[in-house]
Simulated scan of single mutants.
Amino acid sequence: MSQLLTLEVPDNARPVRMRTERGVFAALDVAPHGHVPAWATALLVPGFMGSKEDFLPLLPLLSGKGVRVLAIDGRGQYETGSASPEPSYSRDDLARDLISIAGHIGVGPVHLVGHSYGGILARAAVLATEGDPALWASVTFMNFGPAGVSSWQRERLRLLLSVIDSMELADLWPFVKNKEASVPRDVELFLEQRWLRGSREQLSAAAEQMLNEVDRTPRLSRLPLPKSVVSGTPDVTWAPEGVEQMARDLGAGFVRIEGGGHSPNVHRPAETASALVEFWLSCQRQRPSDQWEPTIATKS
Rank of each mutant, 00 (worst) to 15 (best):
M1P: 00
L7Y: 09
D11F: 05
R14T: 06
T20D: 01
E21G: 08
A27M: 01
V30K: 02
P32W: 05
G34K: 08
H35L: 06
P37Q: 01
W39V: 02
W39I: 02
A42N: 04
G47T: 13
F48L: 13
G50Y: 11
F55A: 04
G64V: 09
G66E: 04
G66S: 07
D73P: 01
D73S: 03
Q77C: 04
Y78K: 01
G81A: 07
A83C: 00
S84P: 00
P85L: 12
E86V: 00
P87K: 10
D92R: 07
L94F: 00
A95H: 05
S100D: 07
A102E: 07
A102D: 09
G106C: 05
V107R: 12
L112P: 01
Y117D: 06
A128S: 15
A137H: 07
V139D: 04
F141H: 03
F144M: 07
S150L: 08
R154F: 06
L161G: 04
V163Q: 03
S166E: 10
E168L: 12
A170K: 05
L172S: 00
W173N: 01
K177N: 05
K179L: 14
A181N: 03
S182G: 00
P184Y: 08
R194W: 09
R194D: 06
W195Y: 11
R200L: 06
Q202P: 00
L203K: 02
A205W: 14
E208Y: 12
M210S: 11
R216C: 08
R219S: 13
R222M: 14
K227W: 14
S228H: 12
E241D: 15
E244R: 15
Q245D: 14
G260N: 10
R268I: 13
R268P: 05
R268S: 14
T272C: 10
S274D: 15
S274R: 15
L276A: 04
R287A: 14
E293K: 10
P294K: 15
K299Q: 15
